[in-house]
Design a protein around this nucleic acid. Structure first.
Lengths: 199, 199
DNA sequence: ACCTGAACACCGTTCAAGT
DNA sequence: ACCTGAACACCGTTCAAGT
């Protein structure tokens, strides 16, 4: 042992991330541990710290991959819709669909408290901003008369609202069961909020 | 040692909960541990398990106290407002105010994953339902023409939405700074959603 | 009856030592 | 240079043994 060089650094990173994702999907984020991941990929714990700075950075990368998948699904929704109004509604429903289909990984994104004061890394913030801009562009064409600043507000309101409904629904804190009733909430939010905005 | 009987079971419970709250307020929920709480109150770890079933149940009680404080603040808001519309708006702002003022304890309520399948205990569910009913009653007088089922939907939408905006704002994921801009989001949500509802 | 303290099975993280 | 494995300082939870 020692100096195996069976895998490159990048291969070890990739294997670790995949092993971690399997653990999280199967047993939730609390089941994630460096030791389990290491044993899963056939290395020792120390090796993980050669490749990731610490658990925080490790989780940040896991979340980054989840966010990438979410944005890909958003892109698909956008490509599938001509009408901006229908597209916003579909995007919001898609947010819930994605979260429900990938509950444990999606929850990790929000359960992972960010490293105190230094805030989120740039490349992470970038990914969040990407989704925002999709939404802003759509809203712009829906409520064309409004000032840009109001579009920003509207995008944040919608994003935050759909997020909250999704979060509470998935953690069963809304007294809601089944996909239909969550859709009902999301539809009510989008239709009435947009109606109010363009009133 | 052994058989001290310095404190009753209830006193130990109360001391433990207070020590835990101090820990969480000062250092966040991750700093909470049975050993720290025990040493803080001058007992050993084992004693805590005499008084609480396990950490899950312990956290449930901490959260229950936080929720009680939240509902008290909601009650105060309701008592202070005659106009139903202004009251709904004030309640939503109050939700954010409370969360911001008690960030670490408030976050624990939602970061604590519930014990798998058996769901939330009854007395816990009851407290959530209490807040819901306040909101439903107010909405009823605002949109009197709607069916009861639609009131329930509207209450869930508002609750979930304000929760999401608050959550993302507090964890700094909304690109929003300062209390004024969060109020701006909450106001936009409430005014436009209600306008859409009564359209 | 009440509480201890040691034990068990885990953690994240570091780093001297091996090849 | 790469990886190990043991160490350190923690966890939650249990339970025989003391008073």
């Amino acid at each position: 042992m020692a100096r195996r060089s069976d895998h490159s650094r990048d291969e070890i990173r990739e294997m670790s991330l995949q092993a971690a994702e399997q653990l999280i999907i199967a047993q939730g984020y609390k089941a994630l541990s460096a030791r389990k991941v290491a044993s899963e990929i056939g290395y020792t714990v120390g090796t993980l710290y050669l490749v990731f700075k610490n658990q925080d950075e490790f989780i940040l990368h896991i979340n980054s991959r989840t966010l990438d998948e979410l944005y890909q699904s958003m892109q698909t929704v956008i490509d599938d819709h001509q009408d901006a109004h229908a597209c916003v509604l579909a995007l919001c429903r898609n947010y819930y669909d994605f979260a429900a289909a990938n509950a444990n990984r999606w929850l990790l994104i929000f359960e992972h408290a960010l490293p105190e004061d230094n805030g989120v890394p740039d490349w992470y913030q970038q990914r969040i901003r990407g989704g925002f801009e999709m939404l802003e562009k759509l809203l712009q064409s829906l409520v064309a008369t409004h000032k840009p600043q109001q579009i920003g507000t509207a995008a944040r309101v919608l994003w935050g609202s759909v997020h909250g409904i999704t979060m509470l629904a998935i953690t069963r804190k809304l007294d809601v069961v089944g996909i239909e009733s969550v859709y009902e909430l999301i539809d009510s939010l989008v239709e009435n909020y947009l109606a109010g905005l363009t009133r």
